[in-house]
């Protein structure tokens, strides 16, 4: 089972949860996150420390669920990097994705809810893929290709390539 935790997420979570349910063929539960995320705010950067958040998620994880994915509208960073779209522990249980920099409005473009939803799905599948032990993939259309630019997210599909899905089945 996958647990989706919302942290300061204003969007609708239902479409994502439905899509993930279909993708991973497992039950997806949704619940608001209980901890206070202000603890992870870096005042100077006005961003939230995603590594610290993932660590906290690992501590709080209910034993009954297989994977936890936090979905947030907050701007995430890790030290050294200016931002991250999300973070996961390879072969771990927990991951986080942020919609903050997936939204066209962040780049001064017109709002595009469908595109935002698509990007969020891709990043969610990508980070969950890491928790299932998947590495970055060189196939340009595979969802496990690493994207450090929002446009790069648009060029990959939301699906695993043949090699990655084979690997996922083995896990």
């Amino acid at each position: 089972m996958i647990l989706l935790l919302t942290i300061d997420f204003a969007g609708e979570i239902k479409p994502l949860s439905d899509q993930l349910e279909a993708r991973f063929r497992t039950e997806v539960a949704v619940s608001p996150c209980e901890f206070d995320c202000r603890a992870f705010l870096d005042q100077q950067r006005n961003q939230y420390n995603s590594s610290a958040m993932v660590k906290r998620l690992e501590q709080d994880r209910p034993l009954s669920v297989c994977k936890v994915l936090a979905v947030t509208g907050l701007d995430l960073f890790i030290p050294v990097l200016t931002f991250v779209f999300g973070e996961a522990r390879l072969n771990g249980q927990c991951a986080i994705v942020s919609s903050y920099r997936l939204d066209n409005r962040f780049y001064g473009l017109a709002q595009n809810p469908a595109l935002l939803q698509e990007r969020l799905l891709k990043e969610a599948v990508h980070e969950l893929g890491h928790t299932f032990g998947l590495f970055h993939c060189h196939n340009p259309e595979c969802v496990m290709r690493s994207s450090t630019y929002v446009e790069e997210i648009d060029y990959k599909s939301s699906r695993l390539c043949g090699q990655c899905s084979d690997r996922l089945v083995k896990c």
Binding site: A52, P79, V80, V84, E87, R89, H136
Partner: peptide
């Protein structure tokens, strides 16, 4: 020397294999 830097960078590079 900062643990948080080491750890987060490590986790960021690990998915590269």
């Amino acid at each position: 020397d900062e643990t948080s830097v080491r750890e987060s960078l490590m986790h960021w590079f690990m998915p590269e294999g």
